[in-house]
Amino acid sequence: MTRLNGKTAVITGGSSGIGLATAKRFVEEGAAVVITGRRERELNEAAVLIGRNVTTVVGDVARLEDLDRLYAIVKEKHGHIDVLFANAGAGTIAPLAAATEAHFDQTFDVNVKGLFFTVQKALPLFRDGGSIILTSSVSNVLGVPGFSAYAASKAAVRNFARAWTLELKDRKIRVNSMSPGPIDTPALETTTGLTPEQAAQAAEQFASQIPMGRRGKPEEIADAVTFLASDESSFITGVDLAVDGGMAQV
């Protein structure tokens, strides 16, 4: 398992769920990984779980000064970036009639503004020929009641991959988005605003909408991201890779 041997990777939202599973997989594949997230304790726990070749940086992608500090640490420790997994995201339930300005701003500050500047500020450190993977969502093509702001933000992410593919082609930097379906992570219980009972009901409803009959595992998403990060996907750029059990495909 050396598909990322000698590469330096940065992962936002790397302290839990998809980000953590991907960080573990990247290290197993030979990469040195820098993970960032807002909660120091969770980052430290993630580092222990990963075990080696990992650096943690506390920060919020919606705060540009935090991104500057992240990349200053990456530059000091590694000098360059080969892979960026812009994964940090936010998504709380808010029906149109009840959504507030604060809800809208938080969603777009993290998912759109934060991701945009995560990539922009990484570019001076990027080696030519690198790989950028953006976390979108199957909601970028689906109508999901209560998640309209979130879905719109993830549609923006999908378009970033299209535009940046063309902007960065001369540097041979590949840009792809990856759209997970419902994944079995703590996020449904901890970030959506649902009660435990509501979260359990939502998980059952999501599973019923997926042809494979279950939610995905973080490790299954990590497999797909590792493929996009590696030279095995050397002729793939500008795509949106759905890893959704068929939810948005049939």
Rank of each mutant, 00 (worst) to 15 (best):
R63P: 06
Q120P: 01
K77H: 12
D60V: 03
A62F: 05
T107I: 15
Q120I: 05
V83F: 01
V58N: 01
Q120M: 09
F104T: 12
Y71N: 04
A62S: 14
F108L: 15
A122P: 00
I81M: 09
P124T: 09
V112H: 02
V74A: 06
E101D: 14
L70E: 06
L84G: 07
K77P: 11
A88L: 14
A98G: 03
Q106R: 14
G59K: 01
T100R: 00
A72I: 06
A122D: 06
I93L: 13
K113N: 03
V74P: 10
V54Y: 00
H78R: 10
K77G: 07
G91R: 14
H80F: 10
F116R: 13
D60R: 08
G130E: 09
E101Y: 10
D109F: 02
F126T: 00
H78K: 11
D109Y: 13
K113T: 10
L96K: 00
L64I: 13
E76C: 06
V54Q: 02
A88Q: 15
Y71F: 11
I132N: 07
G91T: 14
I133K: 04
L125V: 08
S131H: 02
V83I: 15
D105C: 12
A98Q: 13
I73E: 13
I132E: 09
L84H: 07
V54E: 01
V57L: 00
F85E: 10
I133T: 11
L123C: 00
D66Q: 03
E76V: 13
D105Q: 10
A122H: 06
N111G: 11
Q106D: 15
G114A: 07
A88D: 15
F85R: 03
L70R: 09
A90D: 14
I133H: 04
D60W: 06
H103Y: 12
H80N: 12
V83H: 03
D128E: 15
F116L: 12
A72E: 08
H78V: 04
D128I: 04
V57E: 01
A94S: 06
K75T: 05
H78I: 00
G114V: 05
I132S: 08
V112M: 05
T55E: 02
V61I: 07
K113Q: 05
A98Y: 02
G59H: 05
N87D: 15
F85W: 11
R63Y: 08
K77A: 08
L125R: 04
F108A: 00
V61G: 06
D105S: 07
L125N: 06
T118R: 11
A122R: 02
F116K: 10
G114Y: 09
P124I: 05
